[in-house]
């Protein structure tokens, strides 16, 4: 499957033609709508709120935000940011209600602290893992983005970012960057182990537990990586150099996103004495 992220930078990839195709395709529209509704469910907003839409594109997700009925806490007011001028042009043609900025989310979020109640982002932040010029790095762009997002949200605010990571390395790079910025983070995986797997990065300002976001939802298993870590710390320390110690170190490195050799029957085994 080809990834648009590997072809061109977003502002060039989504030209007039591609933006129109994207916005008019009924398949993309229905996928986008279901993901936006899922994100709204995770945000669990009770009152009309100010929402930041990161990578708003042609406003497919924004439309849904403005259309939330009154008894479900809407309608919300949103401000969108996108790097593709053609996509924003499509949004203008479709006459969406939110304000939009032509801006690169990898350059920060230009709002004063505590502006937004919540933020959503549908299929956008994986673009931050690409550096298009030699004077920027993905890590620096992710840092600017998450730092800016953290500031612009009010305390107790939440953000839900649906994204398509290319591999596990990208997935950990993004979630680690969010945690470094101070967010309490968790990843919700819909339809795991299928081709249409959807990842939602759930972030909360003020850190702490984000598992509350999925409380009361059907069919969601919570796997808490933090709690496992803590339990491991309480165990009696294994002897340095032992097999258990090596496995522990490898797991730690893998959690950090480092490349780790896969385990085999030789892992941590003593060498034969040659003489």
């Amino acid at each position: 499957m080809s990834r648009p992220e590997d072809i061109l930078p977003p502002d060039l990839f989504y030209d007039d033609n591609e933006s129109r195709k994207y916005t008019t395709s009924s398949r993309i529209r229905s996928i986008q709508a279901s993901m936006t509704n899922r994100a709204l469910e995770l945000l669990d907003l009770q009152e009309p709120s100010m929402i930041l839409d990161l990578g708003c594109g042609s406003g497919l997700s924004g439309e849904i935000l403005s259309d939330v009925p009154e008894d479900e806490g809407g309608p919300h007011v949103w401000v969108g940011m996108d790097v593709s001028a053609s996509m924003l042009g499509q949004a203008l043609e479709r006459d969406v209600e939110g304000d939009m900025l032509l801006a690169d989310i990898g350059q920060g979020v230009p709002f004063r602290p505590g502006t937004f109640d919540a933020a959503i982002s549908i299929s956008a932040i994986q673009w931050l893992c690409n550096a298009e010029t030699s004077d920027v790095t993905p890590e620096a762009r992710l840092k600017l983005f998450f730092d800016g997002l953290y500031q612009s949200l009010k305390r107790g605010g939440k953000a839900v970012c649906q994204f398509y990571p290319k591999n596990t390395a990208q997935r950990t790079m993004i979630s680690q960057a969010a945690i470094k910025a101070g967010f309490g983070a968790g990843i919700l995986e819909d339809d795991p182990d299928t081709k249409s797997v959807k990842l939602y990065l759930v972030l909360s300002v003020g850190g702490g537990d984000v598992t509350g976001a999925v409380q009361g939802m059907d069919g969601v298993d919570v796997m808490d990586a933090r709690r496992q870590d803590r339990k491991r710390g309480r165990d009696v320390k294994s002897k340095k150099g032992s097999k258990a110690w090596i496995m522990n170190k490898k797991a730690q490195m893998e959690a950090k996103g480092k490349i780790v050799k896969s385990d085999s029957k030789y892992t941590g085994r003593k060498r034969k004495i040659a003489f």
Binding site: L92, L102, A103
Partner: peptide
Amino acid sequence: KEGIANFLLPSHMV
């Protein structure tokens, strides 16, 4: 322009 503000910065100004 048309209600959309351009906040793109050249990389040396970020």
